[in-house]
């Protein structure tokens, strides 16, 4: 069926990538049609999401079965590690684009609009005095208030940092082959992850209905929601992955020296954690 070449497992043909391409394309075509005002856009998009989910079940299922039947040697394991590491780096760069936008607005474009270092503002926006937070000289989206750092965001920081600790406890338990504590600490991590998402959702609701802080609130609203939104999406994905790892731990998939999937998800979780620290400092606090 599939061969080992010098021990390195090279799988033969797979239809999952093509299913993935069809799914992704359906998803984005649906979304694009929706944005262009089509009635069937959203349903097409959800069909695409469904196809992508089927692909992920099938593809990861195949990999898990192969792993469980010991087809991967140490070199394959190393490939997965390198691959996951560089994938996370690409995610870091994705967030870097939005952090870059935040810093550019705060350090350059908003002060310039207020008249610092440039004179063009006088032609269009005379009288605008630069400050942060701002929704710009056009007061886009109307007056708004910001979410204070020392309420829910601080609690959320504690939650995520604690979850970083619990996932490490789970790792230690796994290395000592104690399945009970492993599953327990993983459960705690997943619970903290979903608690974070719940609080974040509550905070969004509060911001939209009480503070008039919306996506349309100028560059503050734009950077606030895009950064926290993409972060929240990553927390959700991470929490789902952790839940799957928990189920696999219950099934006894991991051994003290072979548990790449666990570590990959743990790395991802720490990455999400670190991004949050950046958010807490630069979006909420300073």
């Amino acid at each position: 069926m599939s061969e080992a070449h010098g021990g390195y497992y090279v799988p033969h043909g797979s239809h999952w990538p093509l299913v993935g391409s069809v799914g992704l394309t359906t998803l984005v075509v649906g979304f694009a049609m929706h944005l262009n005002g089509s009635d069937i856009g959203l349903s097409t998009m959800f069909a695409g999401i469904a196809i992508v989910l089927i692909m992920m079940f099938g593809w990861f299922g195949t990999v898990i079965r192969e792993s469980e039947s010991h087809m991967y040697n140490e070199q394959v394991d190393k490939s997965f590690r390198w691959g996951m590491g560089w994938f996370i780096f690409s995610e870091v760069m994705f967030f870097a684009a939005f952090f870059g936008a935040l810093f550019y607005a705060r350090i350059l474009s908003v002060p310039w609009l207020g008249g610092e270092d440039a004179s063009t503002h006088a032609l269009l926006w005379e009288g605008y005095s630069a400050a942060w937070p701002t929704n710009g000289p056009g007061a886009m989206g109307g007056a708004f208030e910001t979410v204070g750092a020392w309420g829910i965001p601080a609690i959320n920081t504690l939650i995520l940092l604690t979850s970083g600790v619990t996932v490490t406890f789970a790792h230690w338990a796994l290395k000592k082959n104690n399945r009970g504590p492993l599953v327990g600490w993983l459960f705690a991590t997943v619970a903290l992850g979903f608690l974070f998402i719940g609080l974040q959702a509550y905070e969004y609701g509060h911001a939209y209905s009480d503070l008039n802080l919306t996506l349309e609130s100028g560059v503050y609203g734009s950077t606030f929601y895009m950064l926290t939104g993409f972060h929240g999406m990553h927390v959700t994905i991470g929490a789902i992955m952790l839940a799957i790892i928990m189920l696999r731990s219950i099934k006894g998939h991991f051994t003290p020296d072979r548990h790449f999937a666990f570590e990959a998800v743990a790395w991802y979780w720490h990455f999400v954690d670190v991004v949050w620290l950046g958010l807490f400092i630069f979006v909420y606090w300073l």
């Binding site: 926006w125 710009g136 000289p137 886009m140 100028g218 560059v219 609203g221 929601y225």
Partner: peptide, 10 residues
């Protein structure tokens, strides 16, 4: 959003 719109501070 107003990333690239001066009216919103972008």
């Amino acid at each position: 959003t107003s990333f690239f719109t001066a009216a919103g501070g972008g």
